[in-house]
């Protein structure tokens, strides 16, 4: 009898862990008060880069978006860029032209020749946009969340459409760390659950029983309280939000002998150690993920 009870308990535990995923499950809507159209100035000068604090200089000022590009912003861009012929719909994808990379024949390197490459998959259930055959719009609940399911080509094209660009890895790192110290997180030395959107952070958008971790609105971790959920104000020293967690951010660099593109900042799906400023993720540039987003610099 005891054995049967133990087996039953284990079986029930397994069954309760097995709820199907409904990706259209609604999420709460919160206004964070952080303007996604705003930019932060990153002044020229030295900062400490990497895990081993290499003193590094960026000898020009630049500005970085205070938040990730949102679904709403991206929908607006799609409508404008489609009208202009800057991008086009091909099958079930938005695609755009890329002039290609120089191929060096490196180990595991894959050639990226000139051609049209995917920007977003239109029919993917995780795309937080609606396409009515004419226009794109953001799904209302997700309008102020980071634009995800966008490839490196799509992120780059967005920035360049407005004469901006993707940040280089170093530009990204300086914006996240500031120029004063060697902090591992944009806000300081230690991390709490309510500093950023990471796995098991228990934010109002997370449902680890079925959905897993989901994005939070841009600028969510600004010290406000949302329906009782208290956030810590967590901008970087230059006032840039969400530089750790929420979504990995595409960066601009194209390196010799490899076709991978690098992402920074960690995401909703990873543990705290991946949110440290110097940690890198990488992917092929055509990959789209509900955990990948971007922001631009100018």
């Amino acid at each position: 009898m005891k054995k049967v009870t133990i087996i039953l308990v284990i079986f029930i535990l397994i069954l309760t862990a097995c709820k199907p995923v409904d990706v259209n499950t609604l999420a709460p809507v919160y206004e964070t008060g952080v303007d996604p159209e705003s930019w932060a100035l990153i002044p020229a000068g030295y900062f400490y880069s990497g895990q081993f604090n290499l003193q590094t200089k960026i000898d020009y000022d630049y500005e970085m978006m205070v938040t990730h590009v949102t679904n709403q912003q991206f929908a607006k861009y799609l409508n404008e860029a489609l009208k202009d012929g800057y991008i086009k719909i091909e099958g079930n994808q938005i695609v755009g032209y890329y002039p290609g990379d120089e191929f060096h024949g490196g180990r595991h390197e894959e050639e990226i020749p000139a051609g049209n490459y995917i920007h977003i998959p239109i029919d993917d259930l995780m795309l937080r946009l609606i396409y009515d055959g004419q226009n794109f719009s953001a799904k209302p609940v997700w309008a102020n969340h980071p634009m995800t399911m966008v490839s490196w080509f799509g992120a780059k094209a967005y920035c360049e459409y407005y004469d901006w660009r993707l940040p280089s890895e170093l530009e990204w790192e300086k914006a996240a760390r500031g120029s004063e110290d060697t902090r591992p997180f944009p806000w300081g030395e230690t991390i709490e659950r309510n500093n950023a959107n990471l796995i098991n952070s228990r934010d109002p958008f997370e449902d680890m029983k079925s959905l897993g971790s989901r994005t939070t609105p841009v600028g969510f971790y600004n010290g406000k309280t949302y329906d009782g959920y208290v956030t810590l104000n967590s901008p970087s020293p230059f006032g840039v939000f969400d530089m750790a967690g929420n979504v990995w951010e595409w960066t601009a660099n194209v390196y010799e002998e490899q076709h991978y593109r690098y992402l920074r900042g960690g995401s909703k799906d990873v543990y705290e150690n991946y949110l440290r400023i110097w940690v890198r993720n990488s992917s092929i540039p055509t990959y789209t993920s509900p955990g990948f987003g971007f922001r631009c610099v100018k």
């Binding site: 535990l13 397994i14 097995c18 709820k19 199907p20 995923v21 990706v23 029983k209 079925s210």
Partner: peptide, 18 residues
């Protein structure tokens, strides 16, 4: 896919932990 992985993650981590 990433979007649908949570039940797999839950079952495998539960069994792994047990």
């Amino acid at each position: 896919d990433e979007a649908f992985q949570q039940p797999v993650v839950n079952i495998t981590t539960l069994l792994g932990d047990i």
